[in-house]
């Protein structure tokens, strides 16, 4: 299944963030909320079981100056294999002049899945972006398939963050220099002008990035423990 969806949010003359373009394509179904205000809320619903091996999904999100969007998932995403081992891929591209919070639910890398995920964000001078990723290595008692997940964010063309996470190589996942044998890895990127100090515990940290913004990282054995860290930033 190949699908591309697009969402454009702008600020109207009354100071409301308004969805101007909403183009869903199964399985990427965008559900806007009918409330009017400074923040537009849209849910991203997977309207078919996806992604399966062979699927290629892409979503483009544009948010204009002064506008704010919250894009939320509704359910965990299960990365599943196709019938003959093909790769699946998903990409989300943000063009931000206003403010975006992208909060999908956790992604579960099931056995034999083979997926590549790319999140790209281009921010202008004052744009803000918050994006979360929680990866679960397999369902209970299941070995994970393979996933490459990368995020790249730039502000006015200059790189703020570029990280690729690869899971599914047992020797690296188990290494204390890899994922330290933890089943759940979560990150939350906050790109804004707020200065946050460094904080951390045994398997979590909140750190300032070199060119502005912060990153929270947590490793754990369950989603609840990991998201608690991410919620706190």
């Amino acid at each position: 299944m190949k699908a591309s969806a697009r969402l454009v949010v702008t600020l109207d003359s009354h100071g409301n963030s308004v969805v101007r373009v909403l183009r869903s394509m199964t399985p990427l179904t965008l559900v806007p909320h009918r409330r009017v205000g400074p923040l537009a809320l849209v849910h991203l619903v997977s309207s078919v079981t996806a992604p399966l091996g062979g699927d290629s999904l892409s979503l483009t999100v544009e948010v204009g100056p002064g506008a704010s969007l919250e894009l939320r998932g509704v359910a965990a995403t299960l990365l599943l294999p196709g019938s003959s081992g093909e790769e699946s891929s998903s990409s989300v591209r943000f063009l931000v002049e206003g403010s975006v919070r992208y909060l999908p639910e956790p992604t579960v890398v099931t056995n034999r899945a083979n997926h590549t995920s790319v999140v790209e964000a281009e921010l202008d001078g004052h744009a803000q972006l918050r994006t979360r990723e929680v990866l679960v290595l397999g369902r209970a008692g299941e070995k994970p398939g393979t996933l490459s997940s990368s995020v790249r964010a730039t502000r006015c063309g200059k790189p703020l963050l570029h990280q690729q996470l690869v899971v599914g190589d047992p020797s690296v996942d188990a290494s204390s220099a890899g994922l330290a044998g933890r089943r759940v890895v979560g990150t939350e990127v906050v790109l804004d002008s707020v200065e946050r100090g460094t904080d951390g515990g045994e398997w979590w940290s909140v750190v300032p990035l070199a060119a502005g913004g912060s990153l929270a990282t947590a490793l754990g054995d369950d989603v609840v423990t990991v998201t608690r860290v991410l919620d706190a930033i």
Binding site: Q164, L165, S175, A177, R182, G200, E202, W203, S205, T217
Partner: peptide
């Protein structure tokens, strides 16, 4: 040009400083 992250190494490095 690679972009591989190392979450556990990063967390170990931050904890080492503390």
């Amino acid at each position: 040009l690679p972009a591989l992250g190392s979450p556990a190494l990063d967390l170990l490095a931050e904890a080492h400083v503390r």
